[in-house]
Design a protein around this nucleic acid. Structure first.
Length: 602
RNA sequence: GGGGCGGUAGCUCAAUUGGUUAGAGUACCGGCCUGUCACGCCGGUGGUUGCGGGUUCGAGUCCCGUCCGCCUCGCCA
């Protein structure tokens, strides 16, 4: 049998000095060749597992050019070849940069499985880092050959394998849920698919399997898991795609503590097995604490720069900005004054940087960003004169030291939290306060059930409208929905939300009440979510669950900040697939069959 | 929908105030080279400057429009 029809015996990253003397057959892509002249050609052969150097040599008596030598000299990058030879220690010294650097294959026979056209890009990690991502995405079949990308694909595969193993070992049943479902109100914009057999009607692609996994609980599945695709027609970000994956879980007869315990165990196992990092028992923080101290519902605990409440002290000053902020009231909530101590900030931040920070904060709705510097003799610059009367308690509360900068955020609570939270993150990054080697996990719990939507002038569910109130909080749905806490929870690592879920409403009456509060009439609720309400009537167990953002999880484990790096075939910011050039126009015949007329350009 | 940055050879980039035939590295093609591994040396091919329009004697460069990519605000139950 000729070489090109034989099977490889090893992969390109496997052979070591201990294999010396073995005859092997390797197949792969030509990474590069080094032609030393008529008598000697090196071939670096690459597959997913690594690179092995093969050598084609003229026979010592030099009886002219062999067929293998002729082929070897003709090889070009990314040609697909197979070769046979004997493993031997390197004659020319080891290459410490390769795992196989101690050996080489003395190739006796080389055959071409497939010639490659001149490749538009090369699968080189260093070049890829400089390359326009557009070019990489357009040539994804080559980009994915890079060692880094192969390694991430492998990592992602290990994560999904571990998830299936971990949860299925604990009684979770893997169940698939439909992709063509009913469009539902609330939440993100749906992707929509025309229904040929029902002219004028549409399926929606699922934003998540939420309702189906709840119905699986009603159906007695007890514990469900799925690695599923979710689709939300919203603008992407660096860590967000319209099409993404979740590790989706749901449990019956459970409570919040059990869910957090099970999920915490999985996360600790993941970090241990993938990164060999011991993650301690996960801490919990209330949403209110997170917002007040970090200005955000997913705090990055790798650094300080915490926000401190100053309402009482600010009220003792004559500073109009503080007094106005505190006097203002919005939807029953008084304005606040918060402050942040920036250690050493008086020296490390220039006037120009502070001005830029002010503009940055204004971008989040803050009226301004008063600051002052802490000197030996008192406060200097900025609003120092207003602060003089409260100097001693202010120093104590913020732990101020000479050389610090203090940043103040007066205004509506939501605005101050958002703006100072963003200022905190920006300063943390720019002042090099973030220890990239740390992993800071926490559960954020005790979310409010609702937040008020100023534009639509109605309550909207902070999590989703199937989230249950915390035990004992249900009466507040009637009396004070704005202060009713939910049984929702988010898992946060290093300021990034990697999982979120809740204990669900399993009683129809409470579900109807929540629908009513978010402005969904009984008729609408019945028409949009009737199948869920009907299920809740037919014996729904208490249940709850969670979903991991798989892509983001892999981003953290892989150490990348680009979600496209962890998705084999990602989309661009405008939702395009540059490899297959989707989306695209479709035939008039297809449109006709679907009963769709396109409106003219508007 | 808003804001910012970018688009010149296959790839990464350069091109003075608007001025000759748009250059370099690399890749690619040809030749040479028996221990390379970012191989080396010699020679060569390669351009709708994203696209369309305008100003100008003359546009990669200035103006208008548009497309595409990235970041970001809004949005993402």
């Amino acid at each position: 049998m000729t070489l090109e029809h034989q099977r490889r015996t090893h992969r390109c990253g496997e052979l070591r000095e201990t294999d010396a003397g073995t005859e092997v057959v390797l197949a792969g892509w030509v990474d590069v060749t080094r032609d030393q002249g008529r008598g000697l050609v090196f071939i670096d052969l690459r597959d997913r597992s690594g690179i092995t150097q093969a050598v084609v040599e003229a026979t010592p008596d030099g009886d002219g050019e062999s067929e293998s030598m002729r082929i070897a000299r003709s090889l070009r990058r990314e040609d697909v070849v197979i070769l046979r030879g004997v493993v031997r220690p390197r004659a020319g010294g080891a290459n410490p940069r390769l795992a196989t650097g101690g050996i080489e294959i003395a190739a006796s026979e080389v055959a071409i499985l497939n010639r490659a056209d001149h490749p538009p890009i090369l699968p080189d990690d260093e070049e890829a880092a400089r390359m326009d991502e557009e070019v990489r995405l357009r040539n994804r079949h080559i980009d994915l050959r890079r060692p880094r990308m192969q390694s991430i694909l492998g990592l992602r595969s290990r994560v999904t394998r571990l998830a299936r193993e971990h949860f299925q070992d604990r009684g979770f049943l893997e169940v698939e849920t439909p992709l063509l479902i009913r469009s539902t109100p609330e939440g993100a914009r749906d992707f929509v698919v025309p229904a040929r057999l029902h002219r004028g009607e549409f399926y929606a692609l699922p934003q998540s399997p939420q309702l189906f996994k709840q119905i699986l609980m009603v159906a007695g599945c007890d514990r469900y898991m799925q690695i599923c695709r979710c689709l939300r027609d919203e603008d992407p970000r660096a860590d967000r795609q319209a099409e993404f994956s979740q590790i989706d879980l749901e449990l019956s007869f459970t409570d919040r503590d059990e869910v957090l315990e099970i999920v915490g165990g999985f996360v600790r196992r993941l970090w241990k097995e993938i990164l060999d990092v011991e993650v301690p028992e996960l801490v919990r923080m209330s949403w209110a604490d997170a917002m007040n101290r970090y200005g955000i519902d997913r705090p990055d605990l790798r650094f300080g720069l915490e926000l401190v409440d100053l309402d009482d002290l600010a009220a003792q000053t004559e500073f109009g900005v503080f007094r106005d902020a505190l006097a203002a009231e919005h939807r029953g909530r008084k304005g606040v004054v918060k402050a942040m101590r920036v250690p050493g900030g008086a020296a490390s931040l220039t006037r120009k940087q502070i001005d830029a920070l002010t503009e940055f904060a204004k971008g989040f709705g803050l009226g301004g960003l008063p600051t002052t510097k802490v000197a030996e003799q008192g406060f200097e610059t900025g609003i120092a004169k207003f602060l003089a009367p409260i100097e001693a308690p202010l120093r104590e509360r913020l732990g101020l030291e000479t050389g610090d900068l203090v940043v103040f955020g007066p205004g509506r609570w939501e605005t101050v939290c958002k703006a100072l939270g963003e200022v905190r993150l920006k300063l943390g990054r720019e002042l090099g306060q973030i220890d990239e080697s740390r992993w800071e996990f926490l559960w954020v719990v005790d979310f409010p059930m609702f937040e008020f939507d100023e534009d639509e002038e109605r309550w909207v569910a902070l999590h989703h409208p199937f989230t249950a109130p915390l035990p004992g909080q249900a009466p507040l749905l009637e009396s004070d929905p704005g202060n009713c806490l939910s049984a929702g929870y988010d898992l946060v690592v290093n300021g990034s939300e990697i999982a979120g879920g809740s204990i669900r409403i399993h009683q129809q009456a409470i579900q109807e009440k929540v629908f009513e509060l978010i402005g969904l009439s009984a008729e609408e609720a019945e028409s949009k979510f009737g199948f869920l309400l009907r299920a809740l009537r037919h014996g729904a167990p208490p249940h709850g669950g969670i979903a991991f953002g798989l892509d983001r999880l892999v981003m953290h484990l892989a150490g990348t900040e680009n979600i496209r790096d962890v998705i084999a075939f990602p989309k661009t910011q405008s939702g395009g697939d540059l490899l297959c050039d989707a989306p695209s126009a479709i035939d008039a015949a297809q449109l006709k069959e679907l009963g769709i007329d396109l409106a003219g350009e508007s």
